[in-house]
Design a protein around this nucleic acid. Structure first.
Lengths: 247, 247
DNA sequence: CGCCGTTTTGATAGTTATCAAATATGGTGG
DNA sequence: CCACCATATTTGATAACTATCAAAACGGCG
C-alpha cells in the first residue's frame, strides 16, 4: 500500500509537470516564435480503454495527450493486436493535415487519460504551427516507429523490453518529466506484450529475468532502470530525439 | 536465360515508366498547383550496396529514387541488420526539413539505382513543396512503417511475406508501374529476410510454401501474385494510400 | 569451364507461443 | 476492517515456430 501510493504520487507528479510547463505544444511552439499561438484548449478526461480516435474518423483539431498513456493500435480480425505506437503524456495524438484529414489508425487510452484539443480554423496559423511544433512531433514519431521496427524485427525479447523502457524513459524526459528515480508506467504486461510483439506470459518471464539480473526494478506500475548508461550500451540504444544521432 | 531477360525487360520497363511520367515528385506536385516547380534535377547512378545516405550526414537536397530499390537500414554492432523501410522507384529518399537537416538513418542501394537530387535553395519554395508533394510522401512512409510494425510484430512468416509483397505491389502501382502481370523485385532472399525480421533460410522455405500453394509465382526476380484480392483478405491487407481507409 | 553469390536442403537447437491453472493485487461493499 | 470480485501476475508443461550451422545444388558471368 505504501508502494502503491508511491506510484500514484509519481503519476500525479508527472501530470502536474506536464500541466505546469503549460503544454508541450506550447513548449515547442515558443522557441519557434509562435508565442502568438494562443487558441484556447479544450481538455477532457477518458477512462482506460476508451477509443480516443477511430480509423477513418475525420480529424478536425490538434489533439494532444495531457496525462495518461495512449496507443495507436492495429487490430486483426482474429483478435491479435499490435500497438504500433505509444503516445506518452505531452505528446501529440493527431492533427489535421492538408489533404489527409482522416485518421489512419485507431488510438485507444491505455490508462485513464486527459486529452486536449485545439480547434485551429485559420489555415495559415495551422501551417505555421505545423512547421514549428508539429513537424518536430512528426520527426520523433517517425524515429520511434523506426526504433520499434528494429526492435521487433531483430531483437530478442530481453533486448526488446530493455530497449523500449529506455525509449520511454527518454521520451518522458523530453516531455519534462523527471525519470532519474524511476517513472510510473501504467501499462499491464499484456499491453506491453502487444507493443513488443510478444505474449504476456513471455513478457512476464523476461521481466523476471531483468529483475533478477538487477537491470531494472519494476513493480506496481513503477519502473526504475538501475544503470541506464550501461543498459543503453548493452542493447545498443540510440536517441530518438531529432538532430541527435545518438552517440 | 529466356526467363532472365524477362525480368530484365520488366525492370527496364519500370524504369522507363517512372521516367516517362516525369517524376513522382512532379506527379505529386502538379495536382497541388506546383507546376512552377522546375528546379533542375541531377541524376546519378550507383551500384548495389552503395551507401546513398549516411546516418548523421547533412541533407541538403530533395533526393528521390528514379530506378532501382533502396532501403533505410539499421545496423547492429554484432552484425544483425534490419531494413526498416524500403524505398521503391519513384519514392523520396530524404529531403531537408526545417530544424532537422541531419539524416536519421542510413540508406543503401539494394540493387543498382539511379538517384535524382533537387537542390532547392529558396526556403519558401521548399515549404510549398513540402506542404504539397513531400507531405504526401511522408504520409505514405508513416503508413508503411506502421504496416511494417504490425507485420513484424503480430504476423507469421507466411503472412509477413504475403503482406509485404502486397504492399510492394500497391506502392509500385502508386508510382505508375504496372503490376497486373507480375513485377520485378531485385531483392535477394537475404535482403527480404532483413526486411521481414526473419532468416534467409526461413524466407526460402516459406516462399516455397507460398509457391506450392499457388499463391504466388516467384523466381528470378519476378513476382506474380496469383489472386491478389483473395490474398489481401487472407492476410488482412490494408491500403497504404492516404485518405483511403482500405476497406 | 570455373568462380562466386544465391538458393535450396538437412539436421538440430533455441526461442517464443499456447493452454490451463494458481496466486497475487487493488478496489468495493457490507 | 474483512470478504469478495475482477483484473493482473505468475507458474508449469508442452507445442510450434523460427534460428543456426553446414553443405550441396544452382545460375549467371568472365
Amino acid at each position: 500500500m505504501a508502494v502503491h501510493s508511491l506510484a500514484e504520487r509519481k503519476l500525479a507528479d508527472q501530470d502536474e509537470r506536464v500541466e505546469r510547463c503549460a503544454h508541450r505544444l506550447h513548449r515547442l511552439a515558443k522557441p519557434s516564435g509562435l508565442d502568438a499561438f494562443t487558441t484556447e484548449a479544450r481538455t477532457r478526461q477518458f477512462p482506460v480503454r476508451t477509443e480516443l480516435l477511430s480509423r477513418g474518423q475525420g480529424i478536425t483539431a490538434v489533439t494532444a495527450l495531457q496525462s495518461g498513456w495512449a496507443g495507436h493500435v492495429e487490430l486483426f480480425p482474429d483478435g491479435r493486436r499490435q500497438i504500433v505506437h505509444l503516445v506518452l503524456p505531452g505528446e501529440i495524438i493527431a492533427y489535421p493535415r492538408p489533404g489527409r484529414t482522416l485518421a489512419r489508425s485507431t488510438v485507444i487510452a491505455l490508462s485513464p487519460v486527459q486529452v486536449s484539443t485545439w480547434q485551429i480554423d485559420d489555415q495559415r496559423e495551422l501551417a505555421a504551427l505545423q512547421l514549428a511544433a508539429l513537424s518536430t512531433s512528426d520527426a520523433v514519431d517517425v524515429e520511434c516507429l523506426s526504433n520499434q521496427i528494429a526492435r521487433i524485427g531483430r531483437r530478442s525479447a530481453y533486448e526488446r523490453i530493455a530497449h523500449l523502457l529506455l525509449e520511454i524513459r527518454e521520451r518522458l524526459d523530453l516531455a519534462g518529466l523527471p525519470t532519474n528515480h524511476g517513472f510510473a508506467m501504467p501499462l499491464t504486461q499484456e499491453v506491453l506484450a502487444d507493443v513488443l510483439g510478444l505474449t504476456n506470459v513471455h513478457v512476464n518471464r523476461t521481466l523476471q529475468q531483468l529483475r533478477a539480473e538487477g537491470q531494472i526494478d519494476f513493480a506496481r506500475g513503477l519502473v526504475e532502470i538501475r544503470d541506464a548508461e550501461t543498459l543503453m550500451r548493452v542493447v545498443d540504444y540510440r536517441s530518438v530525439i531529432p538532430n541527435k544521432t545518438g552517440s
